[in-house]
């Protein structure tokens, strides 16, 4: 009896496989085309970045990073990501928790608002801050600058510069990377439902305990995934940051902006050396992303399935 069943299963599997098989030449053609495409559009450009960066040897390659302006750009990029990513992590967790676990009015509007930065062009994201904080802008003229007797003593004589300075760059980066964490967590939390939280509450856990011992552990891989993507974008953002940066060398240039400057100064080898650092970041991001996906495939699959359902319905 048991043998019969397993034979049946075997035959069914076999048939299915055969019916799914295309002739060899079709498979070779399709796979070949896909590989060619990936090679031409992804691998060759990426390899060329490293090849150009190393054209004058390892000495010149590392010299590109010893330049004080390059070091300042790397530091600023790390600082910006260091502020933007944790803030978006906290915000993303709070927002997805509110959206997935509770019902309230205006929820759809909140979701659209969170996704807004995905839809807005980065140039506009930057210009918004120029319009708000620029000297000719809405709030810019009211920013403390120079002596103001009516301000508190710690603000007196302080000069608060938002755009063309680090705060503006951080603000623009936060805006652009706003959706990454929340967008990753909302579907995962929705799939999980509220059952485990209810169980924890009935067993006497308070709100914080429930959050830290039940909700957070359940989404930790999704959170990690969101943070990786958020970080990659925070470090790589060009458009919005370019608008608010003011391009002061050694002060307000991030790595992507520094690459552009080097390229425009005919310093092509150094430009590609710094670009290769950004490419490495992308590669590390990809490896980490795959690692997370591999560790946590099932939850992510469920999450994507639910997102797809959302889109269909």
């Amino acid at each position: 009896m048991a043998g019969n069943v397993s034979t049946l299963v075997y035959v069914a599997k076999h048939r299915q496989r055969r019916s799914l098989k295309d002739p060899l030449w079709v498979r070779v053609l399709l796979i070949g085309a896909a590989l060619l495409f990936v090679g031409l559009f992804l691998l060759v450009p990426m390899a060329s970045v490293f090849a150009e960066g190393l054209k004058k040897g390892w000495g010149a390659y590392f010299a590109a990073f010893r330049d004080p302006d390059a070091l300042a750009a790397i530091r600023l990029t790390l600082l910006t990501a260091g502020i933007a990513v944790p803030l978006n992590l906290v915000f993303g967790l709070a927002a997805s928790w509110a959206i997935a676990k509770f019902e309230f009015r205006g929820k759809a509007l909140l979701i659209s608002l969170i996704e807004l930065p995905f839809a807005v062009s980065p140039v506009v994201s930057g210009l918004v801050y120029v319009l708000l904080f620029g000297a000719q802008g809405w709030w810019g003229p009211y920013l403390p600058s120079g002596e103001h007797p009516w301000l508190g003593s710690w603000l007196n004589g302080q000069d608060i510069q938002v755009i063309f300075a680090v705060p503006g760059i951080v603000l623009a980066t936060i805006f652009v990377t706003f959706p990454f964490v929340a967008r990753e967590l909302i579907p995962i939390m929705q799939v999980r439902g509220n059952d485990e939280e209810y169980a924890a509450l009935t067993l006497g856990a308070n709100g914080w305990q429930t959050f830290f011992r039940v909700t957070l552990p359940n989404v930790k891989w999704g959170l990690f995934y969101g943070v990786i993507l958020c970080n990659a974008r925070a470090m790589g953002e060009f458009g919005a940051v370019s608008v608010v940066s003011g391009h002061i060398r050694g002060l307000t240039n991030t790595m992507p902006l520094h690459v552009e400057i080097l390229y425009n100064e005919y310093n092509i080898q150094a430009a590609f050396a710094v670009a290769s650092l950004l490419t490495l970041l992308a590669l590390v991001t990809l490896v980490l992303k795959n690692l997370v996906e591999w560790r946590h495939r099932r939850v992510l699959e469920a999450a994507t399935a639910s997102t797809t359902r959302q889109f269909i319905s």
Binding site: Q161, G246, H247, R249
Partner: peptide, 20 residues
């Protein structure tokens, strides 16, 4: 001395917008 370079018109705009 720090340097900032760009199109002349857009640089003037940036100074008017508060580039110090």
């Amino acid at each position: 001395i720090k340097q900032s370079h760009g199109g002349s018109g857009s640089q003037a705009r940036s100074i008017n917008d508060g580039l110090q």
